[in-house]
Amino acid sequence: MRKIMQNAISPLSIIAALAAGTAFVATAARAAESGSACTTPAEDSADAAACKLAGMLERMFIYPETGARYAAVLREGVAQGRYVGPDREAAARAMTRDLQATSPDGHLRVFVPKEQPPAPAAQPRPDPAPDFPIIEQPGWIAPGIAYIRFNEFPYDPAVTQQANDFMAQHATARALIFDIRTHHGGGVEQMDAILPWLFAKPTRLLTMETSQATEDEFGSPVAGLASMRVIPDKTMARREHWVTPNDRTALRGAKVYLLTGPRTASAAEHFALAMKATHRATLVGEPTAGANHFGGQVDLPGGLVAFLPVGRTYDPATGKDWEGDGVAPDVAVPKEHALEWVLKDLGIDAAKARALSATHAPTLPMERRKRS
């Protein structure tokens, strides 16, 4: 979920994949043959990047058998020269294609970071400002009906305060609509500002886990958060996400709707599954992106960066997560018509609901992001 591996990581469950068989034996054999290619890669090259990433995936990926297959295909790519010659962008695309062809993952990718201008001497470089609005159109969309669109859950206390302020300013609402059709991820801080208004008793939401070895090396982005309860375990770093009600009771009986679609990803899917699993909201729209496995960015040689997934989030009642499949809506309608459906369900006449849906159409794409 968090975007930096320096601080990052969060939880996992080592359910060793049962798919070994001859395909994995063959992959392992090729890896052994090509392993020597990673002993002396050219320094600061794409091959060096592939070799470093192979080692990290082998040690830290959520499912060890899949991590070994990823490592094998990258080392094979080095041995066959697939990452030599192209520019950095082409090498990053080639590695990502190899990884996704081995086992699709909604987060795992290699890319070239955007260049940032140098910071003035002796001054820390600030995080780059997002090139899109984080929150859009918060307010009363109709009498008694509050609406807000989130495009991200950033690690930003100011946005967390905005989320809390929205809840306080609309504490008399009979219904709240959270539009996350263009929400591509982040952390849990804004969720932790919203959820205490909506629940009547302490409630377990979801479980997050990663290997203890990964957390020991990199730490956790949710360590220290009051909403994250540590579950002691010798091999796994596991935390349960809980909501504790605040003392404001007005919204506990309000109807809650989440608008979802194929661009709803990562932390937004965490929000969606938490609300669905606890039966506190109705999800309307299309299935979410299916990007469950979380982790953070790691710097690689050759000016490349990878997003390395190291953990997963899942429903503790079923043990299931949403990787690949997404979170299914309770009411399946085309994503473009999700808001219109909700407004009509709340008693707004069809013509007015259609007009309000048009004036509250997302400014960002609702389609799934395409990878090269």
Rank of each mutant, 00 (worst) to 15 (best):
A353Y: 09
A289W: 04
H270I: 12
V78S: 12
P157W: 00
N151C: 09
T278H: 11
A353C: 07
P86F: 05
Q169E: 10
A332Q: 07
Q116D: 10
A306N: 09
A175V: 03
R2W: 02
F132T: 13
S34R: 03
Y147Q: 13
A146I: 04
G55A: 14
E286N: 03
T203H: 01
A49M: 07
L108E: 08
A175C: 06
V310D: 04
A171R: 08
L273H: 05
M167E: 07
Q123N: 02
V342F: 10
E115R: 10
G253E: 14
A91D: 15
H360K: 02
G224F: 01
T182Y: 01
G55S: 15
G261A: 08
M1A: 12
D299N: 10
F166G: 08
R125K: 09
R109D: 14
G35M: 09
D330R: 03
G85V: 03
P329A: 05
D131R: 15
H279N: 12
R354C: 05
D233L: 00
I14F: 06
T288F: 05
K234P: 14
G85M: 00
R88T: 15
P365K: 08
A289G: 07
Q297D: 15
P86M: 04
Y147W: 03
L364K: 09
T102I: 10
E336Y: 01
V230T: 12
A54N: 06
A265G: 10
P221F: 04
F166W: 04
D44M: 05
L258Y: 00
A91F: 00
T203L: 00
A122G: 06
R229E: 11
A338K: 01
D330S: 11
I4M: 14
S220G: 13
T260L: 01
D165T: 02
A26S: 10
L206I: 07
A26P: 00
G290S: 05
M5P: 07
A146W: 01
D127S: 06
T160L: 01
V310R: 13
T282P: 01
A72Y: 06
E65I: 04
G144F: 08
T39K: 05
A31K: 02
V243I: 11
T278G: 11
S103D: 09
E43D: 15
F307D: 07
P362Y: 05
F271K: 07
G290A: 03
R252W: 10
I180P: 10
R30F: 13
R252I: 05
R354H: 11
P157L: 08
K234W: 02
H293W: 03
T160D: 12
R280M: 15
G67D: 08
A19E: 15
Q80L: 12
V73S: 07
A254Y: 07
D325T: 13
R149S: 02
M191F: 14
R280A: 15
P287S: 03
Y63R: 10
T235S: 05
V25Y: 10
A274N: 11
A200N: 03
H170T: 14
K255W: 04
G285T: 02
Q161Y: 13
F150E: 04
E209N: 14
R82M: 09
S45E: 08
V298C: 11
A306P: 13
T102S: 12
V310K: 08
A17R: 12
R69A: 15
K52P: 13
A16W: 00
D192I: 00
L57P: 07
G290T: 12
P329Q: 03
I141P: 11
A254M: 12
R125T: 05
D105Q: 06
F111T: 14
D127N: 08
R174I: 04
